[in-house]
């Protein structure tokens, strides 16, 4: 029983207060919800049939999104290798890995879209701010994964190489790396998939990619064109996921 005694009553009270406060201060008009049905029907009606004439834009946009995801992942890998080593208990002392882990948690806490908006402000419109934003945002997770991959390896072979007279970098190369390589491959592919999904919306803030067209067509009420782009996005996500699942299985 989770809710027992005074603590239980206090917890229940807090939850109830939070719900009531949200209702009371948010303008929840049920009449608006009731009229939403016909509007959504109208919206969908205007989306069909999807306009196939936007093929050129779809190709251009998805190619750019793919490039943002690839280069963003590459940037994240380059940043995550040193940061992952510096965040691992196996390689460095607590005085080093603790602050680095805190830094990574801080990076993870910043949403991608926010980083992208800042980058658009800093370097201007186009795919470049998208690439930088993806690289930065993904490093928070990827460096943590790499550190965990290092710390997850069996210690005995490391001790054996130490006993044989191998230095720290040689131990990393021959005792740690062979053990962590499949984990790193799987983590990197997984992060690439997330990068691709997340960068689909970057165009909305002007940071490049296919999201730009969804934004443009919705704003100009060309829902049939927006529908085509949306279908392309869904197909792309499913295809990448299928490819990645097949790829990940190869790393054992």
């Amino acid at each position: 029983m989770a809710f027992r005694g005074f603590g239980g009553i206090a917890t229940s009270g807090l939850i109830a207060a939070a719900i009531l406060w949200s209702f009371a201060t948010t303008d929840v008009e049920f009449s608006r919800l009731l009229s939403a049905g016909p509007r959504i029907a109208d919206f969908f009606g205007r989306m069909f049939p999807p306009d196939p004439t936007v093929m050129a834009e779809i190709k251009k946009g998805s190619a750019e999104t793919l490039r943002i995801a690839i280069l963003g992942t590459l940037g994240a890998v380059i940043l995550s290798v040193p940061l992952g080593i510096l965040a691992s208990e196996t390689m460095v002392s607590p005085a080093v890995f603790r602050p680095i882990r805190t830094l990574l948690a801080f990076i993870r806490a910043i949403p991608l879209i926010l980083v992208a908006m800042l980058m658009v402000g800093a370097v201007g419109l186009g795919p470049l701010p998208g690439i930088i934003a993806v690289a930065f945002h993904a490093t928070g997770m990827l460096a943590k994964f790499y550190a965990e991959a290092i710390d997850g390896v069996s210690r005995a072979p490391i001790a054996a190489l130490e006993s044989a007279g191998a230095g720290p970098l040689v131990r990393l190369r021959y005792a740690i790396w062979p053990q962590m390589a499949p984990v790193v491959a799987r983590d990197t592919i997984f992060r690439f998939e997330l990068n691709l999904r997340e960068s689909l919306i970057l165009g909305i803030v002007g940071a490049g990619g296919i999201g730009f067209y969804i934004q443009t067509y919705v704003r100009s009420f060309q829902y049939d064109k927006a529908a085509s782009v949306t279908i392309a996005v869904v197909v792309m996500v499913i295809a990448i996921e299928a490819i990645n699942v097949a790829l990940r299985r190869r790393f054992t």
Binding site: P157, A164, Y174
Partner: peptide
Amino acid sequence: TGFVFQEFALVERSSVLRNVLNGRLGR
């Protein structure tokens, strides 16, 4: 000083030859 471990302490995903060559790393 060579050491033989109870739990073998080999790199499981590497080849036998690679593991034996690991003994040469200090030399």
